[in-house]
Amino acid sequence: MNETEVTVVGNVATPPDYRETGAGVAVVRFRLAVTARRWDRERAQWVDGGTSFYTVRAWRGLAANVAASVALGEPLIVRGRLRIHEQERDGKKWFSADLDAIGIGHDLSRGTSAFRRITQVKPLPGAPAEPSLAAAPTGVESFAVAATAGGG
């Protein structure tokens, strides 16, 4: 409650790094580059402004989906909780902006994407639930199931 949620549009600046915590919870981390663009009336063209970088973290099922779907350089829209961290290095104060992702998707104004829904397989009594992919290409299904099984 009362957390700052933002939506950021940018490009993946580092390859998504998928890991599992000691408790088996899936997490993926990557950097998102966001470059402001503005119309320069004098030159009658769009020009780039400064670039901001955000560290994006996604957890559990979202982490597995990002790892299976997102690559370096792709345009994304990220919605998440903004966290500003202050640190001191070599006597200088540094600030970093992090996003705890709630939702991540490709920016379809800049390309196309194919969506594959993940469905939950109804477990047998006493067995843990195991996710599966409907109509997933070979390789994606085994990764997504393995990636989400421990952290779901």
Rank of each mutant, 00 (worst) to 15 (best):
M1G: 15
M1E: 14
M1A: 15
E3K: 07
V6K: 06
V8Q: 04
G10M: 00
G10V: 00
A13Q: 01
A13M: 01
T14N: 02
P15Y: 06
P16K: 03
P16F: 02
D17Y: 12
D17F: 06
Y18A: 09
R19F: 07
T21R: 08
G24A: 11
A26S: 09
A26M: 02
R29Y: 03
R29A: 09
A33H: 00
V34R: 00
A36F: 06
W39H: 13
R41Y: 13
Q45G: 08
Q45E: 15
D48K: 06
D48G: 08
D48Q: 12
D48V: 03
G49T: 02
G49M: 02
G49Q: 03
T51S: 05
T51R: 03
S52M: 07
F53D: 00
T55S: 06
T55H: 01
V56I: 09
R57D: 12
R57N: 13
R57Y: 11
A63P: 05
A63Y: 01
A64M: 04
N65W: 05
N65T: 08
V66E: 02
V66I: 10
V70F: 01
V70C: 02
A71P: 03
G73A: 15
G73F: 04
E74G: 00
L76M: 01
V78F: 01
V78K: 00
G80M: 01
R83T: 11
H85D: 15
H85V: 08
Q87K: 10
Q87I: 05
R89A: 11
G91Y: 07
G91F: 04
K93L: 14
W94I: 12
A97C: 08
L99N: 03
I102P: 03
G103Y: 09
G103A: 15
G103C: 06
I104P: 01
I104V: 15
I104R: 01
G105E: 14
L108P: 07
L108I: 14
S109D: 14
G111D: 07
T112V: 09
F115E: 14
F115W: 10
R117M: 09
I118R: 10
Q120S: 12
Q120M: 08
P125D: 07
P125R: 03
G126K: 07
A127H: 12
P128S: 12
S132A: 15
S132K: 13
S132W: 13
L133K: 05
A135G: 13
A136V: 03
A136T: 04
T138D: 13
E141V: 04
S142K: 11
S142C: 08
F143A: 11
A144Q: 13
A146L: 11
T148A: 12
A149I: 10
G150N: 12
G151H: 04
